[in-house]
Nucleic acid binder design. Structure first.
Lengths: 157, 157
DNA sequence: GGGTACTGGTTGCTTTTGTAACCAACTGTC
DNA sequence: GACAGTTGGTTACAAAAGCAACCAGTACCC
């Protein structure tokens, strides 16, 4: 059989395995040592950056759906790493922020994560890092276009 | 709080969401229309390329663990897309290959997947595609090194 | 102001994924 | 040729992800 397709050069496969390996490696820092899940980690990072947000906004900023956000927030509230106060404009929603304990935990984890990231990116020149993110941006953009017009990829109409 | 970390520039996050979006987009081809899971798809591709393999070899070539392979193979055997014959050298193991039906199915899916991939890579120059794969290679290599020596990333001893 | 449609968020359930235990067969050693 | 240790593969169980229904509150509209 004539096989044009090999996994080693197939972007979905390569991207998938890379993402999984990265995730496994990184999660050793915050999962094993601090008991934080990936979803919870994303919520922490986002609230550290934006200080106070609705759950919905957290979801938009982290590309998580509302169920994931809801469960991550619940877990963090259980451990009192987050504070929740009602939103005046909409009594269904609540504003989330890091509690002092949450901020403290985050400040312990962040430098380790940054060090880990530096270590991962060490073999790449600064220009290569730029390129990498630019390529990811392009691919995500293209994916968004493709999902708008699913079958506009062949030559014929 | 001084936040050095933002998800939009955090490689694990970007890589993860990109991989997920790619996977969702691609799986529309083989999952929705042919009822093939990602794991099953990988097995098909690998057997199309290597014609006859042990489950263990499939696992090595696809970066899947043996449980995943076992389940994918079981699913494909149920639908008679695979043939299994005993291995003379080791009666625990079995040699796997595509059945005629499996090869036929693969040949129907492959061109669509290739077209989809072309569409995804369309915005990238050939040189950029090269670069992308080279960067992925570098990162995977670095991850392998890092897992060997977990904490050799800071300047001091 | 009472209906309808929508939205923020949670809960319950099903499907998928990962982990660990397991079985049968192979290898090596004595 | 018995035994300990290993390996190919499957099965059983637990954690996690995805999906749909749901509740309470909001917005619109007449």
């Amino acid at each position: 059989m004539q096989h044009a397709l090999s996994l080693t050069r197939f972007l979905p496969y390569r991207c998938n395995t890379l993402a999984r390996k990265i995730s496994v490696s990184l999660s050793r820092i915050y999962t094993e040592r601090f008991g934080i899940s990936v979803a919870e980690w994303r919520v922490l990072v986002t609230l550290a950056e934006y200080s106070e947000l609705l759950a919905k906004q957290v979801g938009e900023l982290t590309s998580m759906d509302k169920v994931q956000v809801s469960r991550a927030v619940a877990g963090l509230l259980d451990r009192e790493l987050l504070l929740r106060r009602p939103c005046e404009r909409d009594s269904r929603a609540a504003l989330l922020r890091l509690s002092p304990a949450g901020a403290g935990l985050y400040q312990r984890i962040e430098p380790e994560v940054l060090a880990w990231e530096q270590s991962l990116l060490a073999p790449l020149e600064p220009a290569e890092r730029q390129t990498l993110f630019a390529l990811i941006d392009k691919l995500e953009l293209q994916l968004a276009c493709m999902s708008d017009q699913p079958a506009a990829n062949q030559g014929s109409t």
